[in-house]
Every structure is written in C-alpha cells, then in structure tokens.
Design a protein around this nucleic acid. Structure first.
Length: 285
DNA sequence: CACCATGTTCCTTG
DNA sequence: CCAAGGAACATGGT
C-alpha cells in the first residue's frame, strides 16, 4: 500500500535494521527494476558498501551507502510502485515468488519483491529530483499551494496526484483529503478559494500524519507464512487487523453511508483512476 | 472471460 | 510549448 505514509513507516522500520550493515552480494532477478542502471554497475557500486542512512522523499526510498575505500556516498533509490515490498529474510530462507532484487547482508538478506514489477531499485536519482515539496515539510506553504493550484485547470483531485505539485499523495489519500476538506474532487484546481486551499492543505497534512501515526503502531511482521520468519515484512496490515476500514472515510466505500451525513458515497473515474466522494459533504466552489 | 487495482511514463491529440 | 487523456507496463484478485 505505498503512498507517502506507508513508505514513511517502512523507512522508520528499515533504518535501524539496515544502518551499519554491509552488502556482501547483489542478485538481480528482474533487470527491469534497476533500469536504467546496468546490472554490472549496480553490483559494482553496492558490493562492499555499507548502509549509512535510510530516508524518504515523496514515495521514494533513499538508501545512503558508504564504502570504506572511497569517500563519496552512493545513493540507492527505491520506489515501491503498486505492489513493491522490502523486507529482511533469514540467510537461507527460500526467496518467494516475484523477487526482483536480493541484497546479501550476511546473516540476512534484504529482499525487494514486486509482483507487478512497477517499482524501482536503481542508481538513477532523477525520480526524486523532480518532486515538489514534502507535504509535511515547511516548504508546503499556503502561498505556494494556492499559487500552483491557480495555474491549473485540471480537476483538483487529478492535480493532487501530480508529484511535482506536492510529493507523496496517491490515489487513496487524495480522495480522503478532499473529503476532509469538504471539496468536490471535480472542482477545477484554479477555482478553489483561499479558505478552501487552506483547508485542503491542512487536510492533506492531517490525513498523511494520521496514517503515519497509525501505521507506526502496527507490527510489520505480518508474514504469517513462516517464510519471513518475523524479521521484517511490510504487507497487508490493514486487511489483517481490520483497521484499514476504520481509517478510510470514503475510499473504496461506494454506496456505503457517509460517516458524517449518511449519504451514499459516490464513485467516479478521473484520469483513469477511481475517485470516491460524498456528494453532499463535498461541494464545488 | 471481463474488469479492477496503492504508480509512473510515454505517446497522441488539441 | 503546454495541458489533458489514454495506453502501457505485469500480475493477481474478484
């Protein structure tokens, strides 16, 4: 479930587990995910390098690596796409289906698994460089947000998915934030008034921060199949605990009663993505 | 079999 | 040149 909050929770768990560990070997099982970095180049850069810091930018994972020989750090960039997973496995555990890359860490292996192979694990840093401000950071100001929205004739929900506007909002949290702000997803971005922009900015920050808070309280070793051996698995936490349903107010709730006014939640398609909203609580400007 | 899915990029059209 | 819409990517679930 990778939007900003899921990636943030993953980073907070991975950081302490990886920091200081040395990469002994690199196995690329699906060359597509490391593109455009050639396999040889990746192996050369990673083997013998040590994890220094694990951080996040938008939906991207940033692995800062250092090697004792050279002083310049290597930045390894990860992206989970729709179905990507990073977790640790015991050294000789058989890697499951759809493993794209395995990093040998000695007693453990860091596995990057991705059923649909839409994600990335690469030395190409152009992805995160194009991103807009962090929604929870100081650069995401009302002034900036208002000015950017004014320049767009797109529906505001579609605009929220533009990672150069603000980094990390995905299809689920876009619908959730608009519901909390009481704004119709079909409203043109440039038509929002000052108060609506303020409310939307706040709603985005609250929705993301809340998801991070909730996600951080959950154990991540949901494997349950023994294979992962409890060490680390970022999986279907929401389904397993049933808390997914509680935290989402509109997403995937077509026909169900609005939590606020009981009106049936509606669904529409915008830019080929599903949008959910309450026709009564969310109005056009 | 048909349709849908948390994301991004590329191509076409206007 | 830019905005907008749609397909493509690859696999699995319903």
């Amino acid at each position: 479930m990778p939007e900003l909050p899921e990636v943030e929770v993953l980073v907070r768990h991975l950081g302490p587990l990886l920091r200081g560990r040395t990469i002994r070997g690199v196995e690329v099982r699906r060359a597509k995910v490391i593109a455009p970095t050639p396999k040889r180049e990746l192996v050369k850069a990673l083997r013998g390098a040590k994890f220094a810091e694990v951080s996040r930018r938008g939906k991207y994972l940033l692995f800062m690596l250092r090697r004792t020989s050279s002083r310049k750090p290597v930045l390894l960039v990860g992206h989970l796409g729709m179905t990507g997973r990073f977790y640790l496995l015991a050294k000789d555990a058989p890697p499951p289906k759809h493993v794209a890359v395995v990093l040998d860490l000695g007693r453990h292996q860091l596995v990057y698994e991705d059923t649909r192979y839409f994600g990335r694990l690469t030395l190409d840093t152009r992805g995160p460089e194009k991103l807009g401000p962090e929604p929870l950071g100081p650069e995401f100001t009302v002034e900036y947000f208002a000015a950017e929205l004014k320049r767009s004739s797109q529906a505001v929900k579609v605009k929220l998915l533009d990672q150069t506007l603000v980094a990390g909002v995905g299809n689920i949290y876009a619908s959730e934030a608009l519901f909390r702000a009481g704004i119709s997803p079909q409203a043109k971005a440039r038509d929002l008034g000052r108060e609506q922009v303020k409310r939307l900015r706040l709603a985005i920050r609250e929705v993301l921060a809340r998801a991070i808070r909730l996600g951080s309280t959950l154990p991540l070793d949901f494997g349950g199949d023994g294979n992962r051996d409890g060490l680390f698995y970022y999986g279907q936490a929401e389904d397993a605990s049933g808390f997914y349903g509680e935290r989402l107010l509109v997403y995937d709730r077509r026909g169900e009663p609005c939590r606020r006014c009981k009106t049936a939640i509606e669904h529409c398609v915008q830019a080929a993505r599903s949008t959910y909203f309450c026709p009564r609580c969310q109005r056009e400007p």
